[in-house]
Design a protein around this nucleic acid. Sequence first.
RNA 1: GUCCCCAUCGUCUAGCCUGGCCUAGGACACCGCCCUUUCACGGCGGCGACGCGGGUUCAAAUCCCGCUGGGGACGCCA
Length: 501
Amino acid sequence: MIRVRFAPSPTGYLHIGGARTFIFNWLHARHQGGVVVLRIDDTDVERNTQTSLDSIHEGLEWLELGWDEFYRQSDRLELHRQAAWAIFEKGLAYRDFTPAAALSENPAAVENPGGAPENPGGASENSGAPEHPSGGWLFNPGMRELTREQSDRRANAGEPFVLRFRVPRDSRPEVVVSDAVYGTVSKATADLEDFALLRSTGMPTYHMASCADDADLRITDILRGQEHLANTFKHVLIFEALGVEAPKTAHLPLLMAPDGAKLSKRVHGPVVSVTTYRDAGFLPHAFVNFLSLLGWSPKNDREELSRDELVELFSLDGINRSNATINFTDQEPFDPKALWLNAQHIRTLDIDELARRLMPYAQQAGFTNATPKKLRAIAPLIRERIRLLGEVATVADFFFTEPRSYNPADFIPKKGDAAMAAEALRKSKEVLATVPAFDHATLDAALRAAADELGVKAGQMFQPVRVAVCGRLNAPPLFETLEVLGRDTVLTRLEFALGIV
RNA sequence: GUCCCCAUCGUCUAGCCUGGCCUAGGACACCGCCCUUUCACGGCGGCGACGCGGGUUCAAAUCCCGCUGGGGACGCCA
C-alpha cells in the first residue's frame, strides 16, 4: 500500500508550489489506491502561526481533493527525540556544545552563512571551524572528538548543546540516492556537514522530525520540491541510522517566477497564493489541471483533463527534470494558460453547477437580487464569455443593476446615424410592448420584421437595442438577454435610452 | 566559494533512455481568414525552438566531452 505525505510548515499562506506538491502526491496516491497523509511540519515554534495553518487548510480544502490522515509534528515531539537519542546511543550522533551566540557574533557567519569567505586569505581567523578543503563548513572543532564521558559531564552540568549527526566521512565515500525523477544522484560524504538533529532547546530539527515521522507513519513515497534533493542525502543517513528502509523519493522540478527566481511568497507576494486564484474565480479542478501540467505531462498531447483522467494518467515517468516558469505580472496575476483552462472547464460545467458556483461571486459583486433562479437563467448566456467566475461581475452586471453612463456614440449603428438609432429604439419599443410572447423565437421574428419595415439591416436594428438594455456594445446574444430581463425592464430601458440618443 | 541539478518555439510541453519515421509534434499567447445581430465560442491558416563548440556515426534534438547560461542547496528554517 502506497502512503504519501504532504508536509507543509505553517509559516505563510499556501502558495502555488505547495499546492502543486500536494496535487502530485494526491495523484500519485490515488492512481494506485494509496493513502494521502497531511502532516503539518511545525517544529519551528518561532515562525509558526495559526493564520498560516488556517490558510493551508483553507487552500487545500478549496482544491476539493481531500486527504486521509492528519498529523501535527508538534504532537509527536517525543517520538522525534527518542529517535534522535537512539542515533546518539549508537554513536552516530554527538553533542556539540558550541554556543549559538558565538556563531552569531561572527560577522562572516551571519552575513555569509554559506561559508564563502569574503576574504579568502583571512578565512581561518574567523572561527577556526573545520572547513571543506574547497570551502564550506563541516563541523565545529573539538566537538566531534569529545568522549562520551566528557560529553555526559558537560551535559549534566547544564551546558546547552545541539545534537549533530556524525557524517561517516572516513568509512564511506559517498551517499547514493535513487530518485524516481532524477535518477541516481550521489554526493561525497566529504561534502556533507554534520547537520543538527536536536536544537539546544531540545526541539527536533526538520531533518530529524521529518525522517522520524516518515518512518513512523510508514510513508512509502516522498514527492516534494527539488530544493530538497540535497537534503535527501542527509535523510538517507538518518534512515539508515534508524535502521529503517528509506522511502522512495521523486523530486519535482521547481516552479519559477517570470523573473527567473524560485517562486516565493516573500518576494512574489499574493499573486502566488492559492486563495488569490480562488477569489478571482478559478474552478478548483481547473487550477488542479493547470498545476498538474507544470512539470508533468501525460505525453499524449492532452491538456484538458478531468479529475478521473488525471488520476488514471498520472505517472512518475511523466515528470520532467527542468524547472517550469509560471507567467504572471503585477497587472495580470494569472498565467494565460491557467485562464484558458479555467474557461474550458467552465464550458464543460452543466448549467446548474455553473449557476451554483457563480452565486458567491455575484454576491461578492453586490448583486443583492441574485437568486439561484436568476443565475440559472443567466449562466447559459455567459458560459462561453467568462474565463473566471468573478467575471460575472462585469459581464452580467446589467442583469442585476440598471446600466449607467451610456456612451451616446455606442447607439449609432454601422453606416447609420443618431436618427437611425432613435428610429430603431422607437420601433423596438413599439414592437416589444405588443409582442405576444417574450421568448427567443417571437422576439427574433418581431425584431427582424421591424428592421425590414424600417429598411435597415438587422444588425443596425439590434445594436441600439443592445446598448439600451445592456449599457454597452458587447454583450450576450440579444434575444436571450431580452427574455431573461423581461418585458418591463426592457421597455423601461428603451424609454430611458430614447432620452439620450 | 563548494556541492547538486537543469538546458526544444515568448510560456507549458512531445520527441531524447532504445540515433534515421523530425523539412522537430501539440497547447497557450499573438496575427489573419471563416462562422456570426455585437462580444464570445467554434473552424481554418500563419508566426515561432533543438544555447554554443567539439567529437562518435553512413546518419545526432537524440550518444560522449567541453563551454556558456539558468536554478537549487549549503542554519540550533523548513
